[in-house]
Every structure is written in structure tokens, then in C-alpha cells.
């Protein structure tokens, strides 16, 4: 019979390290999906997820069991991803890399006939990726959580440890930053 998260956690806290493995197997797909939103290289992604599990294991004693384990783990995941973004801020590309022909065409079609353009196009996905890389870490995290994952300000506050007003301020700045980046792309293309 499969043991519940609470049972596994209790066993780990009592010294049975092997009980941690089913938790790793169960939640790793979720953590990899999260990490892939913030890092590109597979080795970096793997390092991030390893780091999350290491933190989770060593801080398991602080898990009070009031909220599901997954929520507690995701909070740790978001904070680790943010730390990763900040650590790699210097590597962030300041200049927008050249647009491919497909991306160029996609933007042109959005500008001329937006209702006929598919958001599922590969070019759109690549553009989003490039755009996100242009944003500073707080802006990238906020856009990811607020706009793409559609989370509430309160949820983001709980996940990041930032106060609600700070999340709002950062969200405002992030949107402005994103607009600036978009304007840069458009200016490069149209002016």
C-alpha cells in the first residue's frame, strides 16, 4: 500500500532516510517543470532541483503539516529558482539577440492582423523565452508567477516571502520593464 506524504515525512523525521525517496520520485516532475521555466541548460536545471531536494531534506523539521507538502516544497522551489536567477544575473544577455525569420514574421502578423495569429506557434514560444531572459530576476519571477501561471498577489507573497505591497510594486515595475523590452523589439524592427 502506498504511504501518504505525512507518513513518509514522519518516517524521515524519525531517521528513516529511505522514506524520502518516494517523495523525491513523486514530486520531481513538478520541480523539473518549475526549474525549466527559469533555467535553460539541463545541467543547471538538474542542479536547481538537487538543491531544492537538499534544502527540503535538511529543513523537513520545519514542515508543520498545516498545508500540503507540495505547497511547502513549491515555495522552496520558487525561492531556489529566484536565487539561481540572481546568481546568474551577470550572465543575462543585455542586448536582444537577433530575431529569427519566423519570429520576425510572427511579430509582423501580430501587428497587422492579431486575431489571425496563433499563439501556439513555435516562434511565439521562442520570443517569450528571449523576452524573459531580458528581464531582471524580480521582474522575471513576477511575470512568470502573476501573468503566466496566473497566481494571485497573496499567493506570490507567500511563495516568495515578499510582502503584498512589495509584490504589487514589483509587479508594476515588471510590467513596465516588459513593455520596455517589447518596445525595444518593435523599435528595432520598425524604426
Amino acid at each position: 500500500m502506498e504511504r501518504s506524504d505525512a507518513e513518509l515525512i514522519r518516517a524521515v523525521l524519525q531517521g528513516d532516510m529511505a522514506s524520502f525517496e518516494p517523495l523525491v520520485a513523486k514530486y520531481s516532475p513538478r520541480l523539473f517543470a518549475t526549474a525549466r521555466r527559469y533555467a535553460r541548460r539541463e545541467d543547471e536545471i538538474e542542479d536547481i532541483v538537487q538543491e531544492i531536494w537538499s534544502k527540503a531534506y535538511h529543513k523537513l523539521g520545519s514542515f508543520r503539516g498545516e498545508a500540503p507538502f507540495e505547497h511547502w516544497l513549491m515555495r522552496m522551489a520558487v525561492r531556489t529558482c529566484y536565487d539561481f536567477l540572481r546568481a546568474h544575473q551577470r550572465n543575462r544577455e543585455n542586448t536582444f539577440t537577433e530575431l529569427t525569420k519566423e519570429e520576425d514574421d510572427w511579430i509582423e502578423r501580430v501587428m497587422s492582423a492579431p486575431e489571425q495569429v496563433s499563439e501556439k506557434a513555435e516562434a511565439a514560444k521562442q520570443l517569450v523565452e528571449k523576452l524573459m531572459q531580458m528581464l531582471p530576476p524580480p521582474a522575471r519571477l513576477i511575470i512568470q508567477l502573476l501573468e503566466i501561471e496566473d497566481r494571485s498577489v497573496k499567493e506570490i507573497s507567500a511563495m516568495t516571502g515578499w510582502s503584498v505591497p512589495l509584490v504589487k510594486v514589483r509587479a508594476f515595475r515588471a510590467r513596465a520593464e516588459m513593455k520596455k523590452c517589447l518596445a525595444r523589439i518593435a523599435r528595432d524592427k520598425y524604426l
Binding site: 525517496e21 517543470a33 499563439e119 506557434a121 517569450v128 513593455k179
Partner: peptide
């Protein structure tokens, strides 16, 4: 353009592949 890009990002499912025997490595 902003809305289209955000919709595109939302439409992209997150890749949740886990490398082989990852849990063994973690342990």
C-alpha cells in the same frame, strides 16, 4: 503583442521530464 506573448507562454506546457534514476542520485 504583450497579450499574444503571454497567451503563448500560458499555452506552452511545462516540460516535466525527469532524468533517469534522478531520485537515486538525490538520495
Amino acid at each position: 503583442l504583450h497579450n499574444k506573448l503571454i497567451t503563448a507562454a500560458r499555452a506552452t506546457p511545462a516540460d516535466d521530464r525527469v532524468p533517469y534514476a534522478f531520485e537515486k542520485r538525490v538520495m
